[in-house]
Design a binder for these strands. Structure first.
Lengths: 185, 185
DNA sequence: CAGAGCATGTAAGAGGTTACATGATTAC
DNA sequence: GTAATCATGTAACCTCTTACATGCTCTG
């Protein structure tokens, strides 16, 4: 019941296609909301059924035709109404931390391998966020309200990835300093 | 396909009941994995079916009988095998950040109300983690491998909540310094 | 005597993943 | 010619949430 509002939130900023929505979600907004393209296409169809979005088909030469979606005033009202409800704490699901939690069963070398991979993924994500910051938000003082809010959300992404990296480093040093074996190895 | 491993991870440390697992997950381990009690009971039954856990019914006077689950060697082997697979980045779902992202539609006063509520929730969670740290992990140097890994996971929870709070403060100040109205208000 | 805590579940439905499907163009 | 990008979807399956159900004890 909330994917629809995440899509409406993006559509409240600009008209776009299902394809571009799934790209956005995969690259930049994925740390606070995510969905597969199949889900997005289905949800867009449902949203149109309710009259919260509307699409126009745009023919292209040398590319497949695309459906550009726009939010309706009913959709904007629904988004506004939802945004006024109090939010619950986010529910985490991080398989890597589960592995760390039970890390004594596999041993430090297995953990370190996965840890370094995670570190790289978080570093890449952070790098991407930093580049978006430098490219679009270099002059913070002159931002519109809309862009200011987007910038604050991006800042959250950057601090999130920064502390992830700091923690990875802390754990890496700890595991290197005092390695151990898994059960029965 | 991963809730089962989160349960096995906890069961690799100590025998426990479905009820206690759902309490644990709600309070302390919820930031890296979560599930409702209904899901946990069902998954425990499925795990027993596969021979990865086993339960003994413990009768109690003045309390309902309980099923104490223990991991089997097959379960431990399965957990080990799963832990060796590389992990993907966690997929976030944070409704509050979606609201922030599209914050310009509702206005800063609505956002500030929710923000302060979120800040309180994150502060409470952080406080709880800090108390667990002080109570069980005061002497870090003398921890067993098992407890050391649990401690590192807890550290992740603490740093996570700490930066959440720092971000909340940053945003609160920004919204207070430059308030704005929602569309059509 | 109402509500919270202990302790377990079932069932319906919503949400999400994985596999499959199509078909053109562009880059290596 | 192999893979990636653009652009859209269907179908089967699994996971997760929400509502309902039971019954006893302890606390205010």
């Amino acid at each position: 019941m909330a994917l629809r509002f995440a899509l409406l939130a993006i559509l409240s900023r600009e008209d776009t296609t299902g394809y571009d929505l799934s790209k956005d979600v995969e690259r930049s907004t994925g740390f606070f909301w995510n969905a597969s393209h199949q889900q997005i296409y289905k949800e867009l169809a449902a949203l149109q059924n309710e009259g919260w979005v509307r699409h126009t088909t745009v023919e292209q030469s040398e590319r497949p035709a695309k459906k550009v979606y726009a939010i309706t005033k009913e959709g904007l009202a629904a988004l506004k109404c939802w945004a006024k409800e109090p939010s619950a704490l986010p529910k985490g699901k991080d398989a890597f931390l589960v592995k760390m939690f039970a890390g004594d069963v596999v041993g430090s070398d297995v953990l370190l391998e996965d840890l370094r991979r995670q570190k790289k993924l978080h570093a890449d994500q952070r790098q991407l966020f930093k580049e978006i910051e430098a490219r679009f938000f270099s002059d913070v003082a002159s931002l519109s309200t809309r862009d200011r809010m987007q910038y604050l959300t991006l800042r959250r992404g950057i601090t999130y990835e920064t502390t992830w990296l700091a923690w990875c480093k802390e754990v890496e040093e700890s595991l290197e300093a005092e390695p151990f074996c898994g059960h029965g190895e």
